[in-house]
Design a protein around this nucleic acid. Sequence first.
DNA 1: ATTTTCGATTGATATATCCAATGAATTGTC
DNA 2: GACAATTCATTGGATATATCAATCGAAAAT
Lengths: 301, 301
Amino acid sequence: MNLRTLRYLVALERHRHFGHAADACFVSQPTLSAQIKKLEEELGVQLVERRHRKVLLTPVGAEVARRAARILQEADEVVELARSQQDPMAGQVRLGLIPTLAPYLLPHVVKPLKKKYPELRCLLYEFQTLVLLERLDRGELDAAVLALPVPLDGLEHFELFDEPFLAALAHDHPRANARSLTLDALRGETLLLLDDGHCLRDQALEVCSRIDVHEYHDLRATSLETLRQMVGAGLGVTLLPALAQRADDAVQTVPLVPQPTRTIAMVWRESNPRGTTLSLLAEAIRETMAPQITAWGGRAA
Amino acid sequence: MNLRTLRYLVALERHRHFGHAADACFVSQPTLSAQIKKLEEELGVQLVERRHRKVLLTPVGAEVARRAARILQEADEVVELARSQQDPMAGQVRLGLIPTLAPYLLPHVVKPLKKKYPELRCLLYEFQTLVLLERLDRGELDAAVLALPVPLDGLEHFELFDEPFLAALAHDHPRANARSLTLDALRGETLLLLDDGHCLRDQALEVCSRIDVHEYHDLRATSLETLRQMVGAGLGVTLLPALAQRADDAVQTVPLVPQPTRTIAMVWRESNPRGTTLSLLAEAIRETMAPQITAWGGRAA
DNA sequence: ATTTTCGATTGATATATCCAATGAATTGTC
DNA sequence: GACAATTCATTGGATATATCAATCGAAAAT
């Protein structure tokens, strides 16, 4: 069976006339006749009653034509689907972000992106780095926004910006009102960290590795907001990524000198055919965030 | 576009491997490769990510494949329609049954069916209810025999009979030789059940919900025969469907009063062109089983 | 460094589809 | 009743398409 042949049958049903149906299909009448006949042979049933000056579909023929019309419609829909996919900035993109970034970055970028690329529908997911890379590889995500470094084999990457870390202290901490702090000033403090698996945990540990701080081991926060609460409650200090800072009576954030940062980038599979879309998307995010980041002394990539 | 090409795409989706997909379609690998490529060109979108040792469908590719599978199923239905037109009770029918019914029902019906419809070849499958419904929907089965209720949208159904439940007790259980039991008589017993996913598990729980029994949680049987062994070993009691009873030194089955039952029915897709065949088949099964069922006090539908 | 795996490419061959011309059956006209 | 008109079927040759075996080349595995 063949979609073309089904089209012939549907045309024949409409026109009830071999010649006219053939015209409508832009083929010659013998072609259509032969194909209908072949279809009948293949199916082993008579589809058409050929009477002089009158073509009638048999009951089976009518049913087959009805189903054929439906099949053709669905086939046309597939073509439509593909066509609508042609515009690089249309359709949907499945985007994953790390949890210590997503809730703070998205409020800045979602609206501008919607404005710049109104046809683009971003499906947003929040996973830790390892899961992001896994899903990326399995094709369950189109791109991931995360902190470098990650193993980049087979991946394209586009650096978005360097996000500074700030010291977060309880409001009644002796140094809470300093204009800035050196890392050394935190020596001897109790350091609060996120749970295992969050890249921010490793980044904070890395930054603080050269000074003598003791991690608070009894409780590890599972979200940045919990971590902030713990700082506010006076359990210790932590490093907050700049995007996560906000007015908070209980917690003061103080810039560090020299400024530690983490590099935020978007990555995707080299083989992803939507590479263009993803570059443009990354570029748009970079551009949107640049003013904010430079104001904080970070590097817009 | 071409139905053959769509078949190639669907095979590629299933196998995620050009060579294997080609084998499954009985063509050479270059043929399949070329056709997929041509389809991509025709649609103007990349459907497949070709990575070394790994083939991945793009999101569009996956969607196209999904629609293609549907189209192909409908095309196959046209062929079936035509075939069944020639002789409704010839050809093959793919029939799925639930595992708590198949081994006990089939010995009763296979021979009579063979006699009544010698041209009909039944391919038999055994799956749990959820899988049956899924495969039915995907067109991998023509009909399923299962216990109602199930969601019946888009499905025809034909009730075959109501199968009674019997109490199954170890032969040395105090009540093992009773002529009949009320459910209340099981109060306080340990109830043995099948594993999750078996509808019989839910049916037994439903029946016993009003009396106080404790489920034996440490081990759930994966088959009715295992369950019977466990009862024989004295681990507890269970409910057996009437068709599953048989002479067994270690296990006694006792009728319950009033008699709980489950309704066994055959279901198939409304759109299945072999509806006539399937009704006749169901009718034949109902007729074959009626004497047996009424002898047990069940209702022949 | 070598081998293995696997999709892409090539070129020859078989098949399917197409059209123009023509045939055959029915109906309408003189 | 002969002849023309209509309409679908058939024929035969041209063209397009799908197919295969053989081979290539890149990436991984050893």
